[in-house]
Design a protein around this nucleic acid. Structure first.
Lengths: 109, 109
DNA sequence: AAAGTATATCTTGTATTGCAAGGTATTTAA
DNA sequence: TTAAATACCTTGCAATACAAGATATACTTT
């Protein structure tokens, strides 16, 4: 297990939502995009199950499209529920990350 | 389950290390300190098992002392290994949190 | 003395989730 | 026809926050 594995729990889903909000995107491309944002290479065993879960929860919706090279791609877009969930995620993230920053810079509130 | 539960995974241990580094402290007091830093009230079922785990791993060491009011307190201090682990945590945190911030502010690297 | 309250710690079991490992299918190039 | 790149999925494991419940001490109130 990677040393950042635990730290990614509960934030990956929000990050996926944020990226999908930027525009329709498929899983394989998403992995590359995450890396461009600074995440260490994430396994497909992480991303695909997560996308399926979020689709089941109605946060994203998918449509299959032919690819120029390779099998069909599954393009995802945000649902309205997904946008709401993203907003909630951002609130949670700001609350938690500022708390951690407070601890690390040793000042209470 | 709280909405920030998953998000706390992999960061609580680092935060405890950072607080213990400030000075000897016991579990019950730690819970209050975390709240003062902005964390929502953390269960004792979270903190005590975590402290025991970190002690087992040799990151912190404990000594029992009498309390003025109540049962004995278990005071924790950082070991050298704990300081090293804290340093590693900070690197991980900065790597991950900046990645998330990149995603949320929609800019690649 | 007895009962209640605040302090202080621990244990057991559950839910969630990242991820490794392995599998399948399609298109193009060597 | 073989290889490589693309693209997706499934199963099972490991790690951890936390709810729920138990225990014990000291002080205060009745």
């Amino acid at each position: 297990m990677s040393d950042t594995t635990q730290m990614l729990k509960g934030i990956l889903d929000g990050c996926l939502l944020a990226i999908i909000k930027e525009g329709e995107i498929y899983g394989y491309e998403l992995a590359a995009k995450l890396e461009s944002y600074g995440f260490r290479s994430l396994s497909e065993g992480t991303i695909y199950p997560l996308l399926l879960r979020m689709q089941k929860e109605g946060l994203i919706s998918a449509t299959l499209r032919k690819s120029t090279a390779g099998p069909k791609r599954k393009y995802y877009t945000l649902t309205e529920k997904g946008e709401q969930e993203l907003d909630l995620f951002i609130v949670r993230w700001e609350q938690v990350s500022s708390s951690v920053d407070n601890v690390l810079s040793k000042r209470g509130i």
